Amino acid sequence: MSQSRSFRAGIIVLLVASLAGLAISLYAYFTPLTGVNGSLGALAVILSTIALVIMTLVMAPLSCRSGRVALRLLILLALVGTGFAGLLLHQWWLTAAMVVGLIGLLLDMASPAASTTPAHS
């Protein structure tokens, strides 16, 4: 049971961080005087956080080891890219949310349940 909980903890942290990033980017895009409202960069961050949410939801029930590795790599790239975009847009909370998402990804990768899941051919 504890292996399942630790597996879920990483996925939940990643999902919450992705949803928080989506909320922050929507706020920055639609609220006047944020400095980035209506900008193409803020719109790109909205799309990348939506992609993060979708990839996290797809990865949660996935039992194929190679699929999980591929999704983890894509999620890592999206987290780093979105965090860097948050720095460029001066949206510090967005960058903080992506760092929390990275912690969730690391928790998922380090969990015993994730490493002992049998691969389906």
Rank of each mutant, 00 (worst) to 15 (best):
L76Y: 06
A110P: 05
A113H: 13
A20W: 05
V58P: 09
A70C: 10
A42D: 01
F30G: 12
L105S: 10
G41E: 14
L87R: 01
G67Q: 08
M98V: 06
T116F: 04
L40V: 06
C64D: 15
M109P: 03
T95G: 07
G35P: 12
A110C: 07
L26S: 13
L71S: 12
G35L: 10
A42Y: 04
T82L: 00
I11R: 07
S25A: 07
A44R: 01
N37P: 03
Y29D: 03
R5W: 14
S6P: 08
G21C: 06
A114R: 15
S2P: 08
R5T: 11
A110R: 10
L15G: 03
A42H: 06
F30H: 13
I103C: 01
A42P: 03
R72T: 06
T31E: 15
G83N: 01
M98D: 09
H90M: 12
L19C: 13
L40M: 05
I24K: 03
D108W: 05
M55T: 11
I103E: 00
R5F: 14
A28H: 00
T117Q: 15
Y27I: 11
T56Y: 02
A60F: 03
A20H: 06
L26A: 10
L73I: 02
G10D: 05
S48R: 03
A85D: 03
L76T: 08
G67P: 06
S18Q: 06
V13N: 05
L71P: 10
S2D: 15
V58T: 11
T117I: 11
A97W: 04
L43G: 05
H90E: 14
V100D: 04
L76R: 09
C64K: 15
Q3F: 05
